[in-house]
């Protein structure tokens, strides 16, 4: 355990030193603040609370940006260290490869969690400063959204490690990481939408649709946050989905957890077989 924490602390220190932490936090804060101000202006007249609107827009932001940041910091983690020769040295120490992977994971999640909490937290604080009344339910939704954003980040960190453990060189890892992002964030949903339109409800029933949504972690995240509470579901236009979906928060969280555990296990297997 000590070893894992030591490795995690080194990852965080390096992240601080090479400005990854600063860049990720700054990016998330800037985008979150922009969305908070754009979103809070007209909502006074509509039913939804100010923070609910922010939760909806930040959730959409998460789906685009958090996987990207996560893949950027994780795709190089193994192949990059092997390439630079630092992995050979590290593995000559009393350290198991699974510890290396877990240590990096903890460190990278800490960086992501810090960036997300600070970035989104600033948006919430800015909203408070404008003097709007915010209900307790909205706060719960906000906290849940922020926490699940970190969870989605963890999913893509794990996927990034899997890529990093499998490929031979760093360029390939970068290319595949971009591909993973495109598929899960853009192409998958487009294809799903196309399928539903073409199918016209003949073959793809609710059960199949649920399964297909769970196969994309960003969809699971979307359902978790946008359909999670009635107010938000109404304001985000997801009410229709909520009624049909048999996917409660527990199932969605389990899907996200599986999306972390499975790629991590595969990455550990690939890494342990790899010769340096």
């Amino acid at each position: 355990m000590n070893t894992i924490l030591l490795l995690a602390a080194k990852e965080v220190r390096e992240g601080l030193r090479n400005r990854w932490v600063l860049a990720a936090t700054g990016l998330l804060a800037a985008l979150a603040l922009t969305l908070a101000f754009l979103g809070s202006a007209p909502t006074g007249t509509v039913g939804a609370g100010a923070l609910d609107v922010v939760v909806i827009s930040l959730a959409s932001l998460t789906i685009f940006i958090v996987p990207l940041i996560a893949l950027l910091i994780s795709h190089d983690a193994i192949v990059g260290e092997i390439d630079r020769g630092t992995m050979t040295l590290l593995l000559s120490y009393p350290v198991r490869r699974s510890q290396v992977l877990l240590g990096k994971f903890l460190g990278h999640i800490a960086i992501l969690a810090f960036a997300t909490c600070v970035g989104y937290g600033l948006a919430a604080v800015a909203l408070l400063a404008t003097g709007k009344a915010i209900g307790g339910g909205s706060w719960t939704a906000f906290v849940a959204m922020t926490a699940s954003s970190v969870l989605v980040g963890a999913v893509f960190v794990a996927i990034g490690y899997l890529v990093s453990a499998l490929v031979r060189d760093r360029g390939t890892a970068g290319g595949i990481a971009i591909g993973v992002w495109l598929v899960f964030v853009i192409l998958y949903d487009m294809a799903l939408l196309g399928l539903l339109v073409a199918d016209q409800g003949r073959f793809v029933g609710d059960g199949v649709l649920d399964a297909l949504l769970l196969f994309n972690p960003t969809d699971a995240y979307r359902l978790l946050n946008l359909a999670g509470s009635d107010d938000i579901a109404a304001a985000s236009g997801m009410a229709g989905v909520v009624q049909n979906a048999a996917l409660g928060p527990a199932v969605l969280l389990a899907a996200l957890a599986a999306w972390i555990v499975a790629p991590m296990a595969l990455a550990a297997a690939a890494f342990s077989r790899r010769e340096l």
Binding site: E14, R17, N18, G85, T86, T88, L89, S92, P94
Partner: peptide, 16 residues
């Protein structure tokens, strides 16, 4: 491993 020391060819460290 604790009683082993190793210096790799072209050793490199994180420059930061």
């Amino acid at each position: 491993r604790r009683r082993l020391g190793y210096l790799p060819e072209n050793v490199s460290f994180n420059p930061a």
